[in-house]
């Protein structure tokens, strides 16, 4: 049973990353009509920025949690201003191709300087050790990742669904021209939205740095799984992305325990099943 709980916890942690990343993809897709292939590379950058902050600037984990998303978010906003904005009105696929190119560049540069091996990032002192829950031993850092990700996801949901800013955002998603006519600066909102989505990816990167080592390709395979998560959940609903992300992480964790051979593929197999039964995805509407 211990092993089962341990795999469930791993599943919840992976689920947190799926949720944070697919949430960002959904937000970006809503405003920019672009599937951000660079999302995995920016997640990796978040982890690397945390690593640099600690090793070059002596800035600790807690500040990195705040600074890395901001730094990577600014980088993302520069990308949006210099490149992505020129794709408005073009076929969707050009956005995918452009961001794929950006992902190759970012990953290639990091691979050049850091190879393919991992760099260690220590767990902050405050979150070291673990506690005995009676039925299992819980490493505090892992528990923290799950709780904190959940809080961030729910905060993002609240921001978009319940605040005035979020209302503007949803309105601009539906009809940007009309919202502009009301005097809202939509292009700036698009830039900020991309920054927000990218910041969420970077935040996931910082959270994962002490668990999975900091590697240039840490986001490359992850983004493909997240794509499958997005296909399963659909990008129509914020809460849908969060729930699907966590649920698939847990299912993956359970698979690791009951049938480890399929743990790499279970998300893709589920995607196939969902497409066969309900082609629009679990929360999606017909396109």
């Amino acid at each position: 049973m211990q092993a089962l709980y341990a795999q469930l916890l791993v599943g919840l942690i992976n689920g947190s990353f799926y949720a944070l990343l697919s949430l960002g993809l959904a937000v970006i897709f809503g405003m920019l009509n672009i599937i951000n292939f660079a999302h995995g590379a920016l997640y990796m950058m978040g982890a690397f920025v945390a690593y640099f902050l600690l090793n070059l600037g002596g800035i600790n984990y807690w500040w990195a949690l705040l600074l890395a998303p901001i730094i990577v978010g600014i980088f993302g906003m520069i990308l949006e201003r210099t490149m992505l904005q020129w794709l408005t009105g073009l076929d969707h696929l050009y956005g995918l191709l452009l961001t794929f190119g950006i992902a190759l560049i970012v990953q290639g540069v990091f691979q050049n300087y850091f190879g393919s091996s991992g760099l260690p990032y220590a767990i902050p002192d405050e979150l070291k050790g673990g506690m005995n829950l009676g039925f299992m031993f819980l490493p505090i850092y892992r528990g923290w990742v799950v709780v904190f990700s959940l809080v961030v996801c729910l905060a993002t949901w609240f921001l978009i669904e319940k605040t005035r800013l979020g209302a503007y955002l949803r309105a601009a998603t539906e009809n940007p021209t009309l919202v502009r006519a009301f005097g809202v600066n939509v292009p700036r909102m698009i830039t900020l939205t991309y920054g927000l989505g990218v910041g969420l990816a970077a935040l996931a990167g910082v959270l994962s740095a002490p668990i999975n080592q900091v590697r240039p390709l840490m986001g490359a395979d992850l983004i493909i799984v997240v794509f499958a998560v997005v296909v399963i959940g659909g990008m129509g609903s914020i809460m849908g992305s969060i729930i699907t992300g966590f649920a698939l992480g847990v299912i993956e964790g359970l698979t690791k325990y009951f049938y480890p051979e399929a743990s790499n593929t279970v998300v893709f197999v589920l995607m196939v099943l969902v497409l066969l039964v309900k082609p629009t995805g679990l929360t999606g509407r017909a396109a």
């Binding site: 696929l93 499958a228 790499n264």
Partner: peptide, 23 residues
């Protein structure tokens, strides 16, 4: 499987299917 979805989803599905085969 993949023809069931359009546009951007089609690309993501084909990518995910090829990753499934890779594993």
């Amino acid at each position: 499987i993949s023809i069931r979805r359009q546009g951007i989803y089609f690309s993501m599905i084909t990518l995910a299917l090829s990753q499934l085969l890779y594993f």
